[in-house]
């Protein structure tokens, strides 16, 4: 076996997997704090990415455009929680799922109305340098995407484990009623969670567009499918699971393209087969916490 080729495909898989992981993290973050699967996560990221594009188109550097877009997305995510989701606070989870599906359609249409329907070009935040390490070609783009994912993980870990606001977020996720009685502002925390999640989506969008040459209204949809797959595989309540599973899905896809010729162009089958098997054996996902009921 050509090891170099194997590692090249591994890198390809890691770089797309890191993007799935970013969006999967966003999904998990909302699920953990609110118990909702946010189907609009991809389209929120889409809108954010268009904001990034617009800022860059106004002449801002890509890095600055992404930074501003992340901030705008944070605010936008919080507003969405307050305006679209909060009114259904007491409703059944299915109602909220429908609300997020509605949000999916609304944001997709809004993006097209505001920014137009033609494909946009968005440059990469990373240089197009390629390093040659013992014959293995490593792109700065790939490393950049992985570094961003690493930073996201560290920042989230610090936030949740080492800050008061993180403690409050975890408390709200665990038991909103008790948290409220203890004086935690549950509403604010929920808005904060959605904002954080939207900011992560914004980063994922800015990473994915340069790898597909163009930004269109459907740019984030396939990423969302992979991100959901990753979240299911890793366990919907586990950030670590989202990251590991995102990378697994990306790698499985790249290796399938390389090594399983009969599945050419239906390479999606492999990651989904893995997910099916894992969920059959371990329904909560690889890292998800199994919930126990006292009878």
């Amino acid at each position: 076996m050509d090891l170099n080729l194997f590692f090249s495909q591994l890198l390809n898989g890691l770089s797309s997997g890191a993007i799935y992981a970013s969006l999967a993290l966003a999904i998990v973050l909302i699920f953990r704090t609110t118990g909702i699967l946010n189907f609009a996560q991809g389209e929120m990221a889409l809108f954010s990415t268009y904001v990034t594009w617009w800022l860059a188109d106004q002449g801002l550097s890509i890095g600055l455009a992404i930074a501003i877009s992340v901030a705008v997305s944070f605010v936008g995510g919080a507003v969405i929680e307050r305006v679209v989701i909060r009114p259904f606070e007491k409703a059944s989870p299915l109602v909220i799922v429908i609300a997020t599906l509605g949000l999916f359609l609304a944001l997709n249409s809004l993006t097209q109305v505001v920014f137009g329907t033609d494909a946009k070009q968005l440059g990469s935040a990373f240089p197009d340098t390629v390093w040659d390490v013992w014959g293995l070609r490593i792109e700065a783009q790939t490393i950049g995407i992985l570094v961003v994912l690493g930073l996201e993980c560290v920042a989230l870990w610090v936030l949740f484990q080492r800050t008061r606001i993180g403690l409050a977020l975890r408390a709200v996720a665990d038991n909103p009623e008790a948290s409220r009685l203890l004086g935690v502002r549950v509403g604010t925390m929920l808005m904060f969670g959605w904002g954080l999640s939207a900011a992560l989506g914004s980063l994922a969008g800015a990473m994915v567009v340069p790898t597909t040459q163009a930004l269109t209204a459907s740019s984030l949809q396939s990423v969302l499918v992979f991100a959901f797959a990753a979240a299911a595989l890793g366990g919907f309540d586990s950030p670590l699971g989202a990251v590991v599973a995102g990378l697994i899905v990306g790698i499985a896809r790249a290796l399938t393209i390389q090594y399983i010729e009969p599945l050419n162009n239906i390479e999606l089958v492999v990651p989904f087969a893995i997910i099916l098997v894992v969920l059959l054996v371990k329904p909560a996902g690889l890292f998800g916490s199994t919930q126990v009921e006292r009878v």
Binding site: L5, S8, Q9, N12, G13, S15, S16, T211, T212, Q213, A214, R253, A254, I257, Q258
Partner: peptide, 9 residues
Amino acid sequence: SDTKSQVTS
């Protein structure tokens, strides 16, 4: 229109 893994192959 993402061709990366195909091209690597």
